[in-house]
């Protein structure tokens, strides 16, 4: 278990940060070239389809991070693993950012394709609710940071927020919505051509590298905060 000590973790964090910094701009340039130049236009939406390359990865990241947070918080509630708190605390702002970006870029995509910036459609509304759960989660950390009730409150928010995740995923199938059904399926054949799938995954990689970079810096900050608090005991 010594491998997971803060001392070892911080050494690996620095190595990962250096690695991400060394490849990030190269991956970013390749991703943007594919998204803005190389990828073909859509036969119906024209160039507007290029918004997909930032909108879809943002939405995926926003959803995935909340799922990880929910699992992490529940694990922490049951098994009392203190490191998991730092983990979910460092992830939450990244999830909030990408959920907001998915909503904003979705709105910018909606105007030219649907003719409206916003509609109280099931997918859009459930994404807005996810954003609110992220806000509650972050505010709870700030308000109840020294309270013993923090694990219970965070678990409650996580469970309620986790119920919203399948609602977001299946909203386009359960209800008649403006939002199109999923084009990319994990099980089954995707209805998106590889010429668009490649830029999409490249942009996902760019944003995932960015998320990893922010997460590592935030996690390191949390470790330093603990060490600073305990300096007199060392």
């Amino acid at each position: 278990m010594d491998f997971f000590s803060f001392g070892n973790i911080i050494v690996y964090i620095d190595k990962f940060i250096k690695f991400i910094n060394s490849i990030f701009f190269l991956v970013l340039i390749i991703g943007l070239s594919f998204a803005l130049i190389i990828s073909p236009i859509d036969y119906l939406q024209g160039d507007a389809v290029r918004i997909m390359y930032v909108h879809v990865p943002s939405a995926w990241i926003g959803l995935s991070i909340f799922s990880i947070i929910a699992i992490g918080t529940l694990f922490n509630f049951v098994f009392k693993i203190k490191n998991l708190y730092l983990f979910v605390k460092s992830l939450a702002p990244i999830g909030l950012l990408f959920t907001c970006l998915a909503i904003v870029t979705g709105s910018l995509w909606g105007k030219p394709t649907w003719g409206t910036w916003w509609a109280w459609d099931a997918r859009l509304t459930s994404m807005l609710i996810l954003m609110l759960f992220y806000v509650f989660f972050i505010i709870t950390f700030k308000i109840f940071k020294d309270s013993e009730k923090l694990p219970q409150i965070l678990s409650a928010i996580s469970i309620l927020g986790a119920i919203n995740i399948p609602i977001i995923k299946y909203s386009v199938e359960w209800w008649s919505t403006l939002h199109q059904p999923a084009s990319i399926k994990i099980i089954g054949t995707s209805s998106i051509h590889s010429s668009m799938l490649v830029p999409l995954f490249l942009m996902l990689l760019v944003l995932l590298l960015y998320c990893a970079l922010i997460f590592l810096m935030k996690y390191k900050t949390e470790i330093i905060k603990i060490k600073k608090k305990n300096i007199k005991r060392l």
Binding site: G46, D47, I51, H55, L101, T105, P112
Partner: peptide
Amino acid sequence: NMGGYGFYIWTSFLIV
């Protein structure tokens, strides 16, 4: 100009 969608596309990428 991006086929007339320049405003929406560039604003999206810029905001991100």
